[in-house]
């Protein structure tokens, strides 16, 4: 059995027993952000696009699912599908506008669009403005299984996470993923081989937005609310941090990064108060200066196996 298979098996076992060891809602929150970070990493790590507006997809899906659950009283799986559809559509709009530009300009356009989305939700009547959309029911899965109990909710969230994670792995390894990799490595060369690079980037963007939306929708179900925090630019920044801490361009990295950041925030919220922002900033700086590959990237680089991260020529110590 390969090391990779062992890691995944261990992860799966941990996923199954986690609610016995930790507070289930916290684990569910970690899983939602882990999926969000994985979706973001699909763009940054595997396509080479830095989106600084991913909160728009997380938040839009969160609101859409909350709205559908509250006002239309649909079942949770339909609520999720609706949320994903909304974020994928928004992703197509964002992508169509942003992919014409590269590097910092791409990031700035996605940020600007996400800010527009933020102010839309701030003003729109159905979001509850500053209060947020509160009291979203979890409903009954397929109209049968009530998710109100945390353990039922947990295993549903775990299943959603496993599906999302599997899908991203599949995309990375697919023929499409090979082209994305080629575009990341050398866009001009990919174009000269006859690939319409803009279309590939757009599809990658839509897929990433859809999976980010899946994370946002699931989060609404878990917590029972969607708020402006979900669409705030700080959330777009957080997902960058999670991905960098875990290891950009590694498959598992964003999961570890999300775990570290969400747990830290949770632990520090009471103890450190407003210092949380400073601590997060320090982690960010330390990560960029000393651990360019992130946690998983550094591990893979020290114990080279096939699960390794892409090598960086300018990494520290080389």
């Amino acid at each position: 059995m390969s090391r990779q298979t062992l890691v995944y098996l261990a992860g799966l076992v941990l996923l199954l027993v986690a609610p016995l060891l930790f507070y289930p809602v916290l684990v569910m929150k970690v899983l939602c952000f882990a999926l969000f970070a994985c979706a973001f990493n699909l763009l940054l790590g595997f396509t080479g696009l830095l989106s600084f507006g991913h909160a728009a997809f997380l938040g839009s899906a969160a609101y859409a699912t909350g709205f559908a659950m509250t006002h239309w009283a649909v079942t949770p799986e339909l609520g999720l599908i609706f949320g994903v559809a909304v974020s994928a559509t928004l992703g197509a709009v964002f992508g169509a506008i942003a992919i014409r530009r590269q590097g910092i300009y791409f990031a700035m356009i996605t940020l600007a669009l996400a800010q527009m989305v933020f102010f839309f939700y701030l003003q729109a009547p159905f979001t509850g403005g500053e209060d947020g959309l509160q009291g979203v029911p979890r409903g009954k899965l397929f109209g049968i299984v009530p998710l109100a109990e945390d353990w039922a909710m947990y295993y549903f969230v775990a299943a959603v996470f496993v599906f999302g994670f599997w899908l991203i792995r599949r995309i990375i390894g697919s023929p499409f993923g090979q082209v994305l990799k080629a575009i990341r490595e050398n866009e001009a060369r990919a174009l000269s081989l006859g690939y319409e690079v803009d279309r590939y980037k757009l599809l990658a963007f839509v897929l990433s937005a859809a999976i980010a939306g899946l994370a946002g929708s699931t989060k609404t179900l878990v917590l029972g609310f969607a708020t402006l925090t979900d669409v705030h630019w700080a959330t777009s920044g957080e997902v960058v941090l999670m991905t960098l801490v875990g290891g950009v361009g590694t498959v598992v990295g964003p999961v570890i990064g999300a775990l570290v950041i969400v747990v830290l925030q949770n632990e520090l919220a009471d103890k450190a108060g407003p210092w949380v922002t400073v601590i997060m900033g320090t982690i960010f700086v330390a990560c960029v200066l000393a651990f360019r590959r992130g946690i998983v990237g550094e591990i893979a680089a020290r114990w080279p196996g096939k699960a390794g991260a892409p090598k960086q020529e300018h990494g520290p110590g080389h």
Partner: peptide
């Protein structure tokens, strides 16, 4: 080399749901 061959010989390269074994 394979990513170039893929463009000519592997049908649509937009198939993000196919496994890498298809290459």
């Amino acid at each position: 080399v394979r990513v170039a061959l893929q463009r000519r010989h592997a049908g649509s390269s937009y198939r993000f749901w196919h496994s890498e074994r298809s290459l």
